[in-house]
Amino acid sequence: MDGFLQLDLPPILIGTLAAIACALPGNFLVLRRQALIGDAISHVVLPGIVVAFLVTGVVATWPMMLGAAGAAVVAVVLIEAVRRLGRIEPGAAMGVVFTAMFAAGVLVLEQSDTSSVHIDVEHALYGNLESLIWLSGEGWGSLLDPAALADLPPELPRMAAVAALIALLTALFWRPLKLSTFDEGFAATLGMPVRAISFGLVVTAAVAAVAAFDAVGSIIVIAMFICPPAAARLMTNRLERQVAWSVAFATLSAVLGYVLAGWGPLWLGGENAVSAAGMIATVSGAILGLACLAGPHRSRVGAVREG
């Protein structure tokens, strides 16, 4: 049992919190047909990290997160600008901005003297979930021991704070989010600041993506923005319940994915564990697949829009 607390509980909690933090804004992004923004943000994180390294000269968590967050905000502003000024659909605006920024990141990386630094593609994709261990967690009593708690991986409190903040924002701005997602014109006539809401939602998604990226890698970020909300939409016809379902699916993906990654290969007679992040994303995809096949409210989704 000590092994569970030390080795398994922290990654499971961090994975779950990251999944929920991404799934909450993901509900609104999917309904607004902007789900690709998660993909976009995880790409533009690269130039942000490279620039942060060039400015500070160190490989450390906070400068990198700030750089990533800055790049995400720049990307969001550019996407909104391209969308509004070019009058093109959001997907196209995102495609233009995130490929350009990703390319700029690669260019800066190649042209500057960063070759000595190991910016690891695999780490960026799959994160480092299995390494987030809690050596002081020697027994359940450690959960009450301040000294032991101080030794928790810093990703855990950081991810918990981000997830709590996003849950709070979602609850507080529920009505403006819901109404401006459904009927932006009507929301504007009520005096709601619809552009600020749209911008705030994407910035919130960027915060979730950057925090989760650092802890668990971009593959979970991309999966969690889309899979749990899309599966949840097929379970219910009410937004309140959809969001609750998406949180349940995100949690299930994280826990089941972690367990399957650690023990699944052993059950199948293999010897090694597989990537937890990869398996979490796979489970969320499987849940979406099942919801497509058996969800009670799947009939109208994908139906041709009237008008």
């Binding site: 309904l31 459904f182 009520l190 016809n237 829009r305 008008g307």
Partner: peptide
């Protein structure tokens, strides 16, 4: 204000009564 019916996505997960309540969001 009553917008054009085709201006929104009617697949949005909400009930008739919820849409009417939106008129009271102010």
């Amino acid at each position: 204000y009553v917008p054009q019916r085709a201006s929104v996505d009617w697949d949005f997960p909400t009930r008739v009564i919820d849409v009417v309540l939106m008129g009271m969001y102010r």
